[in-house]
Write a protein that binds this DNA or RNA. Structure first.
Length: 191
DNA sequence: TGCCCGATTAACT
DNA sequence: GTTAATCGGGCAA
């Protein structure tokens, strides 16, 4: 049986937690799969929502680690983050893609597509497939309906520049499972 | 207050 | 390749 991730797992820098999440299993209300792509947003990072201080939207980022930060992107989509580091540091990991494994019918119904590669490849798609909305903003990651399990085997993690940002776009803070067909975009570097 | 832009996606030409 | 959908935050006026 895989080991559950506790709140202590998130009491570290996003730059440690983010690569460790690759290969971990994320379930929401019994639906989900392995995390194959994430991005780290440190509070000193100009691209992070928390960079300019607390607002009503990003308040959860300034709270305790091990909780979900869910925000609306482009006024349309929901994006799921895991808050990291000691309380107040305001750093988080964006969940960008999942390999669908459990609850495929529910994901297909919510997404309105059949192709597995279109179910959870992208931050907005992950939330739609799992049924996550702003209603889940601030809830704990170690309690239902969330279930998180550590990876059972070592994962080959690749890193590269983050997607869809203009500030600090050169920083290689996007992490992925090497060779996964469920990445939202391929990683440039091989080997 | 008003205007521009953004951690996106799907549906166009 | 481009563009619409749609809203919170930052910043100028």
């Amino acid at each position: 049986m895989p080991k559950r991730l506790t709140r202590a797992f998130f009491k570290r820098s996003v730059h440690e937690v983010a690569p460790d999440l690759i290969g971990a299993t994320l379930l929401f209300d019994g639906v989900g799969g392995r995390i194959v792509e994430v991005e780290a947003y440190h509070h000193t990072d100009p691209a992070a929502h928390s960079f300019r201080g607390p607002t009503r939207r990003n308040a959860v980022m300034f709270g305790p680690p091990g909780h979900a930060y869910v925000y609306r992107s482009y006024g349309i989509h929901w994006c799921l983050n895991f808050v990291c580091e000691p309380k107040g540091s305001a750093s988080a990991v964006l969940i960008r893609a999942i390999e669908p494994a459990i609850g495929l019918p529910a994901m297909r119904r919510r997404r309105g597509v059949v192709d597995e590669r279109l179910l959870c490849t992208g931050p907005g798609r992950v939330c739609e497939a799992l049924g996550i909305t702003g209603a889940q903003n601030g809830i704990a990651l170690d309690l239902p309906p969330f279930e998180l399990f550590a990876r059972t085997r070592a994962a080959e993690v690749v890193a590269g520049p983050r997607i869809g940002i203009t500030k600090a776009a050169d920083k290689p803070w996007r992490y992925g499972l090497k060779g996964s067909p469920f990445l939202s975009k391929p990683f440039a570097s091989s080997v």
